[in-house]
Computed example of a mutant assay.
Amino acid sequence: MEQLWELTHALEKRVQLPLVNLPGFTGGEVHPGVDLPADPVGAARELRRFWNLGDGPVKHLARRLESHGLVVVAPSGADHAAAKVDAFSSAGLLRPMVVLTPNRADDVLRYRFSAAHELGHLVLHSSSTGDSRQEREADAFAAEFLTPQKSLRPLLPERIDLSRLAVLSQTWGVSVSSLIYRYREFGLVSDATISRAYQRLRALSTQPGFAPEPVRGYPGEQPVMLRRAFELAASDTGLTIRELAHELAWKPSRVRELLGMPDTRPVLRLL
């Protein structure tokens, strides 16, 4: 996170990034001092209204966060220290920051929920301590932000029908598992019915429509703001990766990784 801030600051000296448009965030530039409701569901509904998202699915979530001034990265390199972390964020800097770890890159729907979960932390919690209450609140925010009750409730079949939920999953960009949990949150079925549905879902986990799909197949979910800021600085001032790495005292490979720029060098393979 510290490196992400250093990189962002170095680029902002050369390129004006989108203004921070996140009500409740202390560094907000578009809505400074405007607070969202304290309850997760209310906050999610109000933020959708602020961002003019309507009542439908949220497409291209990572890009949308960036368009409102949030810095989002999804580094490709393995980080053993974050092996059990899907994502993390920081509200203590001049820009809200979200890091989506590689752990969920093979499941775009869980990746999207993780991004919405961190958005919930940013608007609900001045500092994220990771305690169970905060995690539940961020989950509740993410569920309502991605699948508003007003819109989703009329679409859910009266009985849990996994094939129909798979279609809704693709439409709304959330997992079937998440949709089943919404039944519980809406009080539509018993806990025993929920348990049986999860059992059936596990048996279908490798079938088309239920198997995870990697993020690389969804360009709108891949962050681009920092890479495009670098490209703009490069075209305007001639900035190079090597110069930026020298300024930051990093290895060029680390700069490319956080910018989301693949290493284009050919790979030598020895048999």
Results as ranks from 00 to 15, higher is better:
residue 30 V to F: 01
residue 105 A to P: 00
residue 46 E to R: 10
residue 43 A to W: 12
residue 264 T to G: 13
residue 28 G to V: 05
residue 94 L to I: 02
residue 24 G to T: 05
residue 93 L to N: 15
residue 144 E to S: 03
residue 257 E to V: 09
residue 215 V to C: 06
residue 45 R to S: 11
residue 76 S to H: 10
residue 27 G to W: 00
residue 81 A to L: 14
residue 199 Q to N: 13
residue 93 L to Q: 14
residue 118 E to P: 01
residue 99 V to T: 13
residue 62 A to Q: 08
residue 113 F to Y: 14
residue 147 T to Y: 08
residue 230 F to E: 00
residue 198 Y to N: 11
residue 176 V to R: 05
residue 14 R to C: 02
residue 125 H to Y: 07
residue 60 H to N: 14
residue 223 P to R: 01
residue 106 D to Y: 14
residue 55 D to P: 03
residue 97 M to C: 08
residue 265 R to A: 13
residue 144 E to V: 01
residue 202 R to L: 10
residue 261 M to G: 06
residue 157 P to Y: 05
residue 46 E to L: 08
residue 228 R to H: 14
residue 54 G to E: 07
residue 159 R to A: 12
residue 188 L to N: 07
residue 183 Y to T: 00
residue 201 L to F: 05
residue 225 M to N: 04
residue 246 H to Q: 15
residue 73 V to K: 02
residue 43 A to T: 03
residue 19 L to M: 12
residue 20 V to K: 01
residue 51 W to I: 12
residue 214 P to S: 08
residue 187 G to V: 00
residue 236 D to G: 05
residue 271 L to K: 09
residue 224 V to A: 09
residue 263 D to C: 04
residue 65 L to C: 11
residue 143 A to E: 12
residue 26 T to Y: 10
residue 38 A to G: 10
residue 165 L to P: 03
residue 264 T to L: 15
residue 225 M to R: 08
residue 122 L to Q: 04
residue 145 F to Q: 04
residue 204 L to S: 05
residue 43 A to P: 07
residue 203 A to W: 02
residue 150 K to T: 13
residue 238 G to N: 08
residue 90 S to M: 08
residue 165 L to H: 12
residue 147 T to V: 14
residue 5 W to Q: 12
residue 65 L to V: 05
residue 201 L to R: 08
residue 206 T to C: 09
residue 229 A to H: 02
residue 257 E to Q: 14
residue 153 R to G: 06
residue 117 H to I: 02
residue 83 A to D: 15
residue 151 S to V: 06
residue 25 F to H: 09
residue 5 W to E: 15
residue 234 A to F: 05
residue 258 L to E: 15
residue 200 R to Q: 10
residue 63 R to Q: 09
residue 152 L to W: 04
residue 169 S to I: 00
residue 108 V to M: 06
